[in-house]
Structures are given as C-alpha cells and as structure tokens.
Simulated assay, not measured.
Amino acid sequence: MKQVQPFSINIPQNILDELQVRLKHTRLPDEKEGSGWEYGANLAYMKDLMHYWEHSYNWREQEAAMNKFSHFTADVKGTQVHFIHEKGKGPNPIPLILTHGWPDSFYRFLKIIPMLTDPEKYGGRAEDSFDVIIPSVPGFGFSEKIALSQGPVADLWASLMTETLGYDRFMAAGGDLGTGVVKELANRYPQHVTAIHLTDVGYPNGTENWAEMSPAEQQFGQYIQHWWMTEGAYNMIQSTKPQTIAYALTDSPSGLAAWFIEKFYTWSACKDNLDSHFSKDELLTNIMIYWVTGTAGSAARMYLEVARSVYMNPAAQPAKRVEVPTAFASFPGDAPVPREWAERQVNLQRHTIMPEGGHFSAWEKPTLYANDIRAFAQSFR
C-alpha cells in the first residue's frame, strides 16, 4: 500500500474540556406550544439530549469503540483521506468501498463491517465476505478539510482503491451524497467498478424531459418538488450560502445538534420515537465527529460544490445513466422511487423493496442492508 499510515482517533483533552464549558452554558430557544417536530428540532428532545451530552455521554468510550476498527490515512492525489480498511475472513473477498452522506459520516457503516467481513458469523457463507473500505469524504471528519463535488471525490476513490490499496476490480455502495459519488465512480471508471449498490438513485432536478417521463415518474417528480419546498431548506442554505450557517454549526454544540438531529428524526423510520431508533450515544458520536474536527462548515460547502457542478451550470445535462450493473434497495422511510425512474438512472439488475428502514439504512437496519449487498454480489464472484 502506497503512502498509507495507521491512524488512531485521539482527540486532545483540551478540546473536550472546552466543549464541556459550552455545554454547561447552553442557551436554548423557546418553542410554539404543542408544535412537536413540525417547526424543526423538538425542544423537549433537545433539552434531554443536551443534558445527556453534558452529564452522561463519554467520548473516550466511543473513541475506543471506533478504534477497534483498522483506521488509516493516505495522501491520495494530493488530498489527505481517512479511511477504515477491514479485510474479509473468507476466501477471495470482494473489495467494497462504502460512501456516506450528510449529516452522517463513516460512522453510518460501522455496524455492517463485521457482517460483510465475516458473514459466516452472522448466518451467511464465508465465501460471501468482503474487504471493506470506508473513507471519510473530504471535508467530513478526519479527512482533509476541503469541499469537493461528487466527481472529484469519485476520482479520489478510484485512486485510493487502485493505486493506494492495489485493487484492480471492486464494488461500490452508498446513499445520499454518497449516491452521486458512487454513480460518478461507476461512470468514470467502469473498467474497475464491477457493480454498485445504492439506497437511492438520484432525484429529478429540472433538467429532465418531462414529456418522456412515465405518469409514475411525473408523480414522483411532483413528490420531490413538494419535498424540496417543505423539507429542503437545509439544502438551499448549504447549496447557496454555506459559510453563513457554518458559524453557528462550528460555535454552538446545540446548534450543530439541532441541525443534524432534525434530519435523523425526519429522514429515518423512527415513527415519532427517535430514542427507539438511535441511541443518544450513537447520535452524539456522529455529531462529535464533526465537532472535534471542526468540519461542519466544510461538509456543508460540499452542497455548494455539487450545486455549481450541476444546478448552476448552464451546460448541465441530465445525469448520465450508469451502465455498470446496479442494485437498488428501496427503504419505506425514504423517497418512493418508481422502478422506471430507477431503470432510467441505472442498469438495474436487482431491486429490493425493504420491509422497514429509512434514509440511514446501513445504520438503522444493518442486517437487511448487509444481506442485500451480499445477495447481489453473489453473481459477481
């Protein structure tokens, strides 16, 4: 492996001490009585979360748990990239690179690492194992604090897999912003990407020919348009003026938590009970990855880089169809994507309608997610 250095998460104590001071002096807003989550992050939940963060949460325990995995950093095409690299225990494991989105991180995939590297331990077959590579997208967590659009990230991943780690052929999977990265990776490097697995396939963005879309696709487009108008404020801010929100996210623990927590509530399949779906330790550890690295601002800037390359580009064309074999796992808590839209976007070889789960599927329903990847990969072994 070229230019690879072992990495261990070890945050200086002064950063944690300074956070405790901020948590102690948290100032929360008021709330319209009885509004629940309708106006955004619920005040009662946030009070409970902030109290837990100050008095019960233990970063060092979570840090030690994350360090049980094999972390590395490498200079990839001039960009410092953090990644986990866990080798499969079975014969001839398939290399698999997993790409996270926002507001999650590499932490999204930790539950599925043992399921993919050692499937026999989880009721699968040893010959279905993977070498699992989970990088932090630049601008997120422990990778270099630089914002890139999805195409340049795909270029980094191709170099990481082939030049740095020495894999000539590999699979790729992801969701959210990671979907765009994985699709770009497949389109730019089909000679290296065997197949891809997605939990969304991209959304109508106004560059499509509406007359060519089926009634189901047109209905889906209207759904997405309504979603942007009712749920898309975060995207408009981060796609236009990310620096402005970066001040609050970098300076205020409660501001950062609220900005993220509302998305986990809205986008997951928690059914109005976030605590039943994610533990506070899990949610706070993901938030802490942004806090201790100061990357909330650079992560938000990725949205502007993506917007400039797609929405703000006068020469923008509809997204290129992926011809690499693709699996699409559709979770009920996520957008209701019609099959014909998926087939328009990708070379759909497997379409799984999941019984439960939402946008953070690998985190929410790790067994369902890992099993679907394993089943899809069997035809490529």
Rank of each mutant, 00 (worst) to 15 (best):
F7Q: 00
S8A: 14
N14E: 15
N14V: 15
L16W: 09
E18K: 10
Q20C: 00
R27F: 06
G34R: 05
G36C: 04
G40C: 01
N42Q: 14
M46F: 08
M50L: 05
H51V: 07
E54L: 15
H55S: 12
N58I: 09
E61M: 13
A64M: 10
M66Q: 15
N67R: 12
F69N: 14
F69A: 13
T73A: 06
A74G: 02
G78K: 04
T79K: 08
I84F: 01
G90L: 10
P91F: 10
T99Y: 04
H100T: 14
G101Q: 07
S105A: 13
F106P: 03
Y107L: 07
F109I: 06
L110Q: 10
K111Y: 08
I113N: 00
M115F: 08
K121M: 10
Y122L: 11
D128L: 05
F130P: 03
S136T: 08
P138M: 00
S143M: 03
G151E: 09
V153D: 05
L156I: 00
S159W: 05
Y167V: 03
D168M: 05
G174H: 01
G178S: 04
N187S: 11
N187E: 08
P190M: 01
P190Q: 00
H192N: 14
T194L: 06
I196R: 01
G202I: 06
P204A: 05
T207N: 14
E208I: 04
A211Q: 11
M213D: 03
M213S: 07
F220K: 02
G221I: 01
I224K: 02
T230R: 12
N235A: 15
T244M: 12
A248H: 03
W259F: 11
F260M: 15
K263C: 07
W267N: 13
W267S: 12
S276Q: 15
E282W: 08
L283G: 07
G294F: 12
E305T: 01
V306L: 11
S309F: 06
K320I: 12
K320Q: 15
P325T: 00
F328L: 09
A329Q: 02
R339N: 05
E340G: 02
E340Y: 00
E343Y: 06
R344P: 06
R344V: 02
T352R: 10
I353Q: 15
G358M: 07
H359Q: 09
F360G: 05
P366Q: 06
T367D: 15
A375Q: 15
F380T: 07
